[in-house]
């Protein structure tokens, strides 16, 4: 599933970048499997999700540099083990890098121990280090969730949800409906993104340069939202009919394959890493 940031409004506001209408189009790949047969790929889908959640939870309890390092080592190790090529990593849009850099400058200005002695003044690094700590943690967890997407075949997601949430059936949570909706959402996300990309392209053709003024920009964004919702409602009706034609929703979603020994080993290692993250 690919979408382009040049989407609905996609930088059409020009901002003096290129008056002729040319713009960078960073491509984003959502939920795309990086083919492979590493042990990360072979794990049960639920194991990967549990690892990610546990890492996020543990670093939320203790977010020291040492714990972030352990977390990064786990994620980095898994990325290497899964043989993810560098090309799979999304290219960050320039403005996000800019925001991080600006934040770093402001954080540096807040000073605090430790100090580095420069000719003429002492520069306090505490603020900058705090800022870097947050950035490092955010990037680590983001890569972790990308990794789950890169190594999980989409068809395994709904069964894994059904198995993981299974116990909640007893307290009346509609687990099977949720699992069905996950499967359907996975199936439809790509269709939706394709539609949106086409609609955005059509808009560019009709009006290559964005209208001036916030009001017109808001109006356009709103038109696109309405279009997306109209398309979504129609798609939902068609798929609803298709499901009705197959006898309605199934009562139970198959829980798919069960976790195996490798999963048990990974989860045991996870408990240790999480304990280490909290302890250091």
């Amino acid at each position: 599933m690919t979408t382009q940031a040049a989407g609905p409004h996609g930088g059409d506001h020009g901002r003096g970048r290129d008056r002729a209408g040319q713009r960078r189009q960073p491509e984003v790949h959502l939920l795309r499997l990086v083919p492979g047969d590493s042990f990360v790929h072979r794990l049960w889908a639920g194991t990967r999700v549990l690892v990610l959640m546990a890492l996020a939870l543990a670093t939320s309890i203790n977010a020291s540099w040492a714990s972030i390092a352990i977390c990064a080592a786990v994620v980095g190790g898994a990325v290497v083990a899964a043989r993810i090529p560098l090309g799979a990593f999304p290219k960050l849009p320039g403005w996000i890098v800019g925001v991080f850099a600006a934040g770093g400058v402001v954080a540096l200005a807040s000073g605090g121990a430790p100090y580095v002695r420069l000719p003429g003044a002492a520069l306090g690094l505490a603020g900058l280090l705090d800022w870097l700590r947050l950035t490092a943690l955010a990037i680590t967890l983001l890569i972790g969730s990308f990794l789950v997407g890169w190594t999980t075949p989409l068809s395994e997601l709904a069964p894994a949800v059904s198995r993981m949430l299974g116990p909640l059936r007893r307290i009346g949570v509609p687990v099977d409906e949720i699992a069905l909706a996950v499967g359907l959402a996975v199936r439809c996300l790509g269709l939706l993104l394709d539609d949106l990309q086409m609609a955005a392209a059509a808009r560019r053709l009709r009006r290559p340069r964005a209208p001036l003024g916030a009001r017109a920009a808001v109006q356009e964004m709103y038109d696109l939202l309405v279009l997306a919702m109209v398309l979504s409602v129609r798609r939902a009706r068609e798929i609803g009919d298709a499901m009705e034609a197959r006898g309605g929703l199934p009562k139970v979603v198959s829980p798919g394959r069960a976790p195996g020994r490798a999963d048990a080993a990974v989860l045991a290692a996870l408990v240790l890493s999480a304990a280490a993250i909290i302890a250091v």
């Binding site: 979408t3 940031a5 989407g7 609905p8 409004h9 996609g10 930088g11 901002r15 960073p26 984003v28 959502l30 849009p93 403005w95 996000i96 509609p174 409906e177 069905l180 909706a181 996950v182 359907l184 959402a185 439809c188 996300l189 939706l192 993104l193 949106l196 939202l225 997306a228 919702m229 979504s232 409602v233 798609r235 939902a236 009706r237 798929i239 609803g240 009919d241 499901m243 009705e244 309605g248 929703l249």
Partner: peptide, 28 residues
């Protein structure tokens, strides 16, 4: 229980919500 059409709309509207959030991350 949900009817097929309801479930389909729930899934697709959730997709749309996520699509808009992703877009939000990518645009200035």
């Amino acid at each position: 229980a949900l009817a097929p059409g309801e479930l389909a709309e729930a899934a697709i509207m959730a997709d749309l919500a996520i699509g808009l959030q992703v877009l939000g991350w990518l645009l200035p």
